[in-house]
């Protein structure tokens, strides 16, 4: 099985070229001197300069960052609670409805989620702004967090929790000292997932944002509707760079942690 046929090599090469070439092209053209997309007029970083001077983009970036930080923190807390309830509590009234409400937002079209939340905010006469975007984002992001965390909770050795309880720990102490450290990697990746989901969302934010709270994707969308611009290419390059560095760092850190755990386990066995 472990031999790649020429067909496999070709399909992998073409596949990854398809996935990565468009972004590579985007990055290359962000350094283009010319405003035209097809003409290469030499290397230049002037579009990055323009970008830094563009205050509308900077303001939008700040709003987006604020929303994403609040969303991911709230969604991680709520999503972890939800996962714990879903996996550990088998009988309570309305459990089916609860699990339905966790899974439905994962496949629900953004336009429906956005529309329904906007109608709620208008019905309650809430002023729309950063807060309403955070509420909306948290609602769908917590469902993603709970899916990630519950997959870790399922694969969890429950006798550890039982031992802690037997030895006199309160349920809360057990959660804090035993459960939480074990599910921590999933909680962290849930936080990261919620953060990127919030950072990325256009549709739900457009529905729930107020006039003074434009997010970066909304700003990019309205600029991009008029056509390709080198400034947006520069902005995209910065965002791609941040994500790439973030994902690679996270995976290296988790790999190191796994190696360390393995070594400690071996040492414990020898002792």
């Amino acid at each position: 099985m472990n031999r790649l046929s020429p067909f496999n090599v070709v399909s992998l090469t073409l596949g990854f070229a398809f996935l990565y070439l468009p972004m590579v092209i985007l990055v290359i053209y962000s350094f283009n001197e010319s405003k035209l997309v097809t003409v290469w007029a030499g290397f230049s970083t002037k579009w990055y300069g323009e970008l830094v001077r563009n205050e509308a983009f900077l303001d939008a970036a700040l709003v987006t960052l604020q929303v994403a930080l609040l969303t991911s923190t709230l969604a991680t807390i709520l999503g972890t609670c939800a996962a714990y309830v879903l996996i550990r509590m088998h009988r309570f009234p309305g459990r089916t409805l609860f699990s339905g409400m966790i899974y439905a937002p994962l496949v629900m079209p953004d336009v429906i989620l956005g529309l329904s939340l906007l109608l709620l905010f208008i019905g309650l006469n809430v002023d729309r702004g950063v807060l309403t975007i955070v509420l909306a984002h948290t609602t769908f992001a917590m469902c993603y967090v709970s899916v990630v965390v519950s997959s870790r909770l399922v694969a969890f050795d429950r006798s550890l929790e039982e031992a802690a309880l037997d030895l006199g720990a309160t349920p809360f102490q057990t959660f804090r000292l035993v459960t939480l450290p074990i599910i921590a990697p999933a909680v962290i990746s849930g936080w990261l997932l919620a953060f990127t989901l919030s950072l990325d969302d256009l549709v739900i934010a457009s529905f729930t944002a107020g006039p003074s709270s434009t997010t970066l994707p909304m700003k990019i969308f309205s600029a991009v509707r008029l056509g390709v611009s080198p400034e947006i290419n520069a902005l995209s390059t910065i965002m791609i760079a941040i994500v790439t560095v973030g994902v690679i760092t996270a995976s290296l850190v988790s790999k190191r942690a796994a190696v360390r755990r393995l070594r400690e386990e071996k040492a414990a066995e020898r002792a």
Binding site: L19, I220, S236, T244
Partner: peptide, 21 residues
């Protein structure tokens, strides 16, 4: 990781990349 990485990159940017192409 190579398959997942684009998923973490902004959806909007990935669609936009095709406009220039």
């Amino acid at each position: 990781m190579l398959v997942i990485l684009p998923f973490w990159t902004s959806f909007l940017i990935r669609v936009y990349a095709w406009m220039g192409i």
